[in-house]
């Protein structure tokens, strides 16, 4: 006993708690949470996956973008409880222990970042695009990234980075590309 010890008070307000279980970067994670907890906060504060950045916190900037069953969502605008039973990919899920993901390599090689705050969101929007369309045009890339704001780069090198990654991924892909693929390069 110290001089002061806080004791629990009885309260009539019942705090709702839900148990959720989800796959985060391929690993099953479970937590007891209040329904009002946002997915961004579960990832950052609960699971310590601080690669997901919260920028505007008002559904405008796209910095907190993660993949929800492969589709980009703003994790500040999804409740964590809604991810129960779903697959979440954050920027931590891109690289392996020894190798950067080609999208990360692209951002490195093409200098696709300056301050880096928007980068995780950019990379996940890019991943969703390249998963769906391995051979995007520059316009496709600009369109797919149009919900992600960057205040540093002017976007030029981000677009280059994604196009670089697209080419690398096509090159790395198993030999399913017919010979005419080379004609466009």
């Amino acid at each position: 006993m110290t001089l002061f010890e806080e004791v629990p008070v009885t309260t009539t307000d019942e705090i709702p708690v839900r148990r959720v279980e989800m796959r985060v970067n391929g690993e099953t994670r479970a937590a007891n949470i209040e329904p009002r907890l946002l997915l961004a906060h579960l990832l950052r504060n609960g699971l310590q996956l601080t690669g997901t950045h919260t920028g505007c916190d008002t559904t405008n900037c796209g910095a907190c973008t993660v993949l929800f069953d492969g589709q980009p969502v703003k994790s500040c605008t999804v409740f964590a409880v809604q991810a129960d039973g779903h697959d979440i990919t954050t920027v931590e899920g891109l690289a392996t222990a020894s190798e950067l993901h080609p999208i990360q390599e692209g951002f490195k090689d093409e200098h696709g970042l300056q301050c880096g705050f928007c980068t995780p969101g950019m990379m996940l929007s890019a991943k969703a695009l390249l998963d769906e369309n391995p051979n995007p045009t520059e316009d496709d890339v600009r369109w797919a990234l149009s919900g992600n704001l960057c205040r540093c780069t002017g976007y030029q090198n981000i677009v280059k980075a994604v196009l670089w990654a697209a080419e690398k991924l096509r090159h790395d892909a198993p030999a399913d590309a017919p010979a005419d693929d080379g004609g466009e390069a």
Partner: peptide
């Protein structure tokens, strides 16, 4: 409508 990320949801 909105932006590509909002449109997925």
């Amino acid at each position: 409508v909105a932006d590509p990320i909002v449109r997925t949801r």
